[in-house]
Design a protein around this nucleic acid. Sequence first.
DNA 1: GTTAGGG
DNA 2: CCCTAAC
Length: 699
Amino acid sequence: MVCKKRLEYGFNGFQAPFIPRAPRSVRRRVFPKKEDHGQVCAIEVLASLAGKLLQESESSASSNASEGNHQPASGRGAVEQESQGEVKPLVAEGVHHGSCAESAFMTEVVSRNSNQKYLGKAETDAVPECTSVTNPADCCKKIDPNIKPEICKWEDQVEHYSNRLAEAPKNFRESYNNSNTKNGFKREQEAGSSGIEGPSLADKCSLKDPLEFQVNSHAISNSASKTKYPCCSKGTFPNSSFSNYVKNSKVGFRDDDENFIRCNKISIKSKAFKPPHRIARRRIRKLVTSKYWKAAPKLKDCELSRSDAGAKPLFQKRKARHSFERGHYDSLFKRRKLSNQCSGLTLDGGFSSESVSNSLEKGTDGNNPGSSSKQHESKDSHVKFSIKSFKIPELYIEVPETATVGSLKRTVMEAVMAILGDGVHVGVVLQGKTVRDDNRTLQQTGLSCEENIDTLGFTLEPSSLQGSPPVCVGDPPSYHEPSHSVRSPRTPVLDSGITDVLHDSPLLTTPSNPIESNHESISSPTDMMTDKVAADSKSLVVVPDRGTEPLAIVPVTQKAKRSELVQRRTRRPFSVSEVEALVQAVEELGTGRWRDVKLLAFENADHRTYVDLKDKWKTLVHTARISPQQRRGEPVPQELLDRVLDAHAFWSQHQGKQQQHGKHQQQPPATPNKLIESSAPQCLSVGEAVGVIQPVGTM
DNA sequence: GTTAGGG
DNA sequence: CCCTAAC
């Protein structure tokens, strides 16, 4: 009996005050091509709001509120939901995650110019754009009509730069290296002169100014990663407001500054573009200090801006990295996988969470914190809902007694993300029945009458639920990335999924964009959620041990293990120049000295470990041996492959490991002719070799 | 911490 | 790329 005693937790739901925004990688799956925007935003709006409320009112009484359990309503932050989402979709989509809901909310509220109280804190955190508009109503007016055209332009722009990026990744690197830190590919130039590179790097460089590039790329990255479009036209914000915006460092939409870059051609140092959302996250970061936090964001940052050239901070702590992205894939996979395996459901069918209770409020705000939702019929016939939180009910997890709290958190997080991973829709339940007709008005539905308040509930429904089996929490086999073929071959730097995002976006059709910058949004949801779970322990209910009951639970030990080991690094195909450098280094140092190879040719490419180089060499050798037709990925010049074979043959037959003997060149069967020409005197001692090469790329 | 090799 | 065994 290896079975350890396990603790089962009935996850009666937890509050999700923050926007459980899934990482892009997931989001793209979550909202693929569908017209989900409206719904998505609805969730975010609601969730965001809930967050606000939660923050303001410490009331925790609602934790386990189940259907019908309504409590006094909070005085602030009611989400106004019009008959049918009007402004919401577009506006919200134009905003960037974290602030999405808020801003959407704000916009809506402001636009209506009513019920200031609803602004509450959100107001200050929300973005200023709309406030810069004299007449709030105008804001929305301007937004809607302009979005389309803006999108188009934006698209063009994105594509434009995307193409430029795609065609000159090395140029960028060079530019970057030349103008910035010492980072870079030491032997880039050397490689370029080897003839393998073809046209000189400089020639191909179409970017005159590195700065410009950075700014632009930044803009691109933002847009690309978001797959969203500007919420306001350039005409919406005067420059002044922009500068203010920057100065004040308010939480806001990144789109805004991007808009300015794009529309007004303002040349600002990239520094000025510290993503507002990052600022926004600050407060979150204060609350959540997870290891995931520290690692992921920075990592991404670097990867994005520095391409594959030396990026110091990269991969320093591989183990510590937690790419939410991957985790999501895992979750997704898990979910799908499990849904087929588990007979017992972990999630209450349909995931319908009566996590949102509600209450109706009359003419005035009750100001009673603690309610999950409130309904209010105001004079202007607006029904107001205040949803304090959504809960995910019926989530069962099981962990060993010896599991750590951290693993518990992760387990819960994974379970939750598995659920949210595919995207959720908001469902409305009235009197126990799901209201499916989206076209009915609240009035028609009976959502405007007090009598029904007690029986009104919002649910989170997996977008892909439709008749799908229940979701289970478990630990599926390791996740495998989709084959590369699925991905755009033009995504050289990161395959973070942006490509897919773009593809999936009904609004942006840019083929690909190697840049991504939405890092911080990647891990935050996780942490927030996990953190929340921990904090709101009330939502965790220990479920009596059910013994043999097949709850489809998987030992957390494995899960934990997986979670902690983080996920795969983003794949980063070697560029030809890198291969060239690798080949040359190996020619000089031989195989078996990967660390030296690394130091020699990839010292500044922190994302390439010596193991990577070794592996690459391995694949290179393999590639060189197979027919060109069987090769995939960026074609490696035959010349290089030849050199690979030569060098490999040479070193493999010369105890390559310690070419120390200095005499190993004594008639190497495959005397690497090229090896000789290539600059690597076979008799060169390590020291010499290094001495010769080291200086080359130093700069 | 490095290497070598299997996965 | 990851993971591990074996230095």
